[in-house]
Design a protein around this nucleic acid. Sequence first.
DNA 1: TCATTAAATTGTT
DNA 2: AACAATTTAATGA
Length: 246
Amino acid sequence: MKSLHTTSDLPLYQRRRPLEPAELDAIPWIQLLAPAERQRAADDLRIADASPGDYVCRMGRPVTYWFGVVDGLLKMSTDNAQGQTMTFTGVPPGGWFGEGTAMKRESYRYNIQALRKSLVAGLHVDTFHWLLDHSIGFNRFVMNQLNERLGQFIAAREIDRMTNPDVRVARNLAALFNPVLYPGVGQLLSITQQELAYLVGLSRQRVNEALTALAAQGSIRVEYGGIRVLDLAALRSHVFLRKNGL
DNA sequence: TCATTAAATTGTT
DNA sequence: AACAATTTAATGA
């Protein structure tokens, strides 16, 4: 098993560049802005590659950017007092995060690492604040974002208490397929079973077994290097039936 | 473009 | 953790 830990740090400070038009279209909130606001945002936005293990931001560092995933997959985690790492969630394409700390201009409260080769966009905090001060559309987006994420964290607490691995995999997948938080995902989530195992905290074998069960039940389809949703509502709420019962 | 080979991912034990 | 089977990506004619 390959290690995710590297010594590289904050790749966004190097190798970053302005966005191309196609990449701008992958920014969900850009269409909500008035022309002048959109221009300012587009001028400020920067994008960079992140390799597996690269840190996009680190706990305790001052906030520099508000980040979004254009392509790839990131992992949000924290280190507790005992020095153990706790993974909160994955961040698939279309996801933007860090608005809470950006608003307060505090330091990041978690680590964000690339789980696979990813394209990460960043909006400088100053521009983030300027948009908050000038754009109603942007404010709506941020509020909606905060509200939706609150729902996810409440759901995440429930997931943690669940013992059944199949249900854990199902709920975690449902979270990643959230169309409001991650509009870039669509019906097909690009994620390997190994990556999903990292996020859910199970072995790859057990994830494979759960995926097979979920596929048999009809809520997803397993593809090479990805998962396709067929029934998101079922994924969210399904109380899994044991193998031998029904 | 096609065929071959290497690499990545999946399914199974 | 190990291994075989499958799928994709890379290479070169």
